[in-house]
Simulated scan of single mutants.
Amino acid sequence: MPQAVGVIQTLGFPAVLAAADEMVKGGRVTLVYFDKAERGEFLVAIRGPVSEVNVAMEAGKKAAEASYGGEVVSHYIVPNPPENLLAVLPLEYTEEVEQFRV
């Protein structure tokens, strides 16, 4: 089954928390990465089937914008990422997230 990667970058922690929560509830996806970006920005990445990532990303963007002071700075989806992308970026299913993989 083709896998996709979805990333949302927000301004402020409450917005990224709301986005991450809504993404894992809104689609059959696994949260694979979370970190601080720069200047008070945070990002969260998910993986899963392409159709599920699309649905989860829409839900996450709406939740981030609806949170108090929430702002989505950037978002993108990479359907069927090539192996060299996965080798460079920390988007693989790790042992830590494997137990939560759907």
Rank of each mutant, 00 (worst) to 15 (best):
Q3I: 12
A4M: 02
V5A: 03
G6L: 06
G6E: 11
I8C: 06
Q9C: 06
Q9R: 02
Q9N: 12
L11E: 13
G12D: 06
P14F: 10
P14V: 02
P14C: 08
P14N: 07
V16M: 08
V16I: 14
L17C: 13
A18V: 01
A19T: 01
E22Y: 04
M23G: 09
V24I: 10
G26Q: 04
G26L: 08
G27T: 04
V29H: 02
T30D: 09
L31S: 03
Y33F: 10
F34R: 05
L43R: 01
L43W: 15
A45S: 14
A45K: 04
G48M: 11
P49H: 09
P49E: 15
V50D: 01
S51R: 08
N54T: 15
N54L: 14
A56H: 00
M57P: 01
M57K: 00
E58P: 01
G60N: 04
G60P: 00
K61Q: 14
K62I: 12
A63T: 01
A64L: 04
A64S: 05
A66S: 13
S67A: 11
G69W: 08
E71T: 11
V72D: 06
V72F: 11
V73L: 05
S74C: 05
H75E: 15
Y76Q: 09
V78E: 13
P81Y: 12
P82S: 10
E83D: 10
L86A: 07
A87L: 12
V88H: 10
L89K: 04
E92W: 07
E92V: 10
E92P: 03
Y93D: 11
T94Y: 12
E96Y: 09
E98H: 12
Q99T: 04
Q99C: 03
R101D: 14
V102F: 15
